[in-house]
């Protein structure tokens, strides 16, 4: 007992330490974000926040729900695996509100050459033309229906979509 009687100053020291530790815990409770450390050394809620970002591309499935005819035309031709929004651009807005957001028809003069202008860097089997020689200024869709581009499918063949 005589040992403890002289150890009072040690208890006070320990007391101060405990109080400081508790203050640390309380401050930490405030500054460490909620969900931090749930999966790892990061804020787990950030995953949900990023997953909630808005969509711009609706996806081919959404297009097919209303435009089954075009999808059928497309499926028969060489562009079967080209998704609608690859050419028409992001159209989630159109899916949400078809009347308010009307897609702008792409200009084939710039659209087609993006993929089909001849370049040695493109894969060898990929259909390529030197547009200036190939069409001589005639618009692509005159002969080719963009949705199913075989020759004779274009607007002057009566097969335009």
């Amino acid at each position: 007992m005589s040992v403890l009687k002289d150890a009072g100053h040690l208890f006070r020291f320990v007391g101060i330490f405990v109080v400081l530790f508790l203050i640390f815990l309380v401050v930490r409770g405030f500054v460490v974000p909620k969900t931090f450390g749930e999966y790892g050394h990061y804020r787990a809620a950030a995953i949900g926040e990023i997953a909630a970002n808005p969509l711009h591309f609706a996806g081919h499935q959404a297009c097919a729900e209303c435009h089954a005819d075009i999808v059928a035309t497309k499926a028969a031709g060489a562009h079967a695996h080209v998704n609608c929004e690859a050419c028409h651009g992001p159209l989630e807005g159109h899916v949400e509100n078809p009347a308010a957001v009307v897609p702008v028809l792409p200009n084939t003069a710039t659209l087609c050459v993006r993929c089909h202008e001849a370049s040695a860097a493109r894969p060898k089997g990929f259909p390529q033309v030197v547009a200036a020689e190939h069409a001589n200024g005639v618009a692509c869709e005159t002969c080719h229906n963009p949705h199913s581009p075989a020759i004779g499918s274009g607007s002057n063949a009566g097969g335009a979509q």
Partner: peptide, 19 residues
């Protein structure tokens, strides 16, 4: 991540014409 968690593919894959 906002697309793949909804069952869609990424925007780049969606727009890639050749797969």
């Amino acid at each position: 991540y906002h697309r793949i968690t909804k069952g869609l593919t990424t925007a780049c894959c969606e727009a890639c014409p050749t797969g």
